[in-house]
């Protein structure tokens, strides 16, 4: 127990300033993190031409990120299409003719559901694996070992991952779009009593190639977000297994949140500014 004198002697200003100081520290810490992230982004851009010159490393990452995620993307997209079909049919009941079912499913999948859900699923899988791998390399001094061999870790480790992710995410999204529409058709055909010809007519009715393009631009940005979040949190991992776990969690949470926030701004940009101006 402290004596009463000691309590009196302690300067009151400290107690008063404590919350202010801790708030200040948090703000500074956050700003510092943002700064570090953009420094990593800048270094990645600078090292990009040199980093993609090594074909084996790039192809290896493309395989892991692209082909590795394909089964997962197909499975989730199939059910996304199926649920889109059920939901749309439920909302159409007695108000909208079923020939618009294909239209609604296709457009919502291509513009929104395909890119975003693919990014979230791949973000969980790839973001976690990148941050865990780089984090483990960091805590076992393998990143330092690269530096001692005079190899730039950004060029050697980060650029191939980012390049592979921004290339593979649009490709995975194309698969996702096709499979989801297929899933929608399957449910329409099997449980909603909508014939194939009516569904296909709906798909073709208001289909615009530029919607697909808009979705792919999103996927490209999401690919960058996923890989950069994984790399950033992986590279700043500290302290053993616990640090690696923390880095993985942070990478997945950060990429998921950023994907959804970025999705809104991209929708504004692509649908309103670019496509709106073209109308």
């Amino acid at each position: 127990m402290e004596s009463p004198e000691a309590q009196v002697q302690r300067p009151a200003t400290d107690e008063f300033l404590d919350p202010v100081m801790s708030l200040g520290e948090r703000v500074l810490g956050t700003l510092e993190e943002i700064g570090r992230f953009f420094m990593l982004l800048w270094e990645t851009i600078l090292q990009f031409p040199a980093g993609i010159r090594s074909a084996p490393r790039l192809v290896d990452q493309m395989y892991q990120i692209g082909i590795g995620s394909l089964p997962l993307v197909i499975l989730t997209s199939l059910f996304v299409g199926a649920v889109a079909s059920v939901q749309a049919a439920y909302q159409f009941q007695n108000f909208v003719p079923m020939r618009y079912l294909g239209t609604v499913i296709t457009r919502s999948v291509v513009i929104e559901l395909g890119p975003v859900l693919t990014a979230l699923v791949v973000g969980g899988r790839v973001g976690a694996s990148i941050s865990a791998e780089l984090g483990t390399m960091k805590v076992t001094e393998q990143i330092d070992a690269l530096e001692t061999l005079a190899i730039n870790p950004v060029r050697f480790l980060i650029v191939p991952r980012v390049a592979a992710a921004i290339l593979m995410l649009p490709m995975l999204t194309v698969f996702s779009d096709i499979v989801a529409v297929f899933g929608g058709w399957m449910i329409a055909r099997l449980s909603l009593d909508v014939s194939t010809s009516v569904f296909v007519e709906g798909v073709r009715l208001f289909f615009r190639a530029r919607d697909v393009f808009g979705g792919l631009v999103k996927a490209f940005v999401f690919g960058a977000i996923i890989s950069l979040a994984g790399c950033y949190y992986g590279m700043k991992t500290e302290g053993g297994a616990e640090g690696v776990g923390l880095a993985t969690t942070k990478a997945v949470v950060a990429s998921s949140v950023t994907i959804l926030v970025a999705d809104y701004f991209l929708a504004e940009l692509i649908l309103r500014v670019i496509f709106g101006a073209a109308e």
Partner: peptide, 22 residues
């Protein structure tokens, strides 16, 4: 950073945990 990497090419280092790329 790049200049320091050039200097580092004259060094070799053995890490405590070996730090081989797994």
């Amino acid at each position: 950073h790049d200049e320091r990497r050039q200097v580092r090419r004259r060094f070799g280092m053995l890490f405590q945990g070996a730090a081989l790329f797994d």
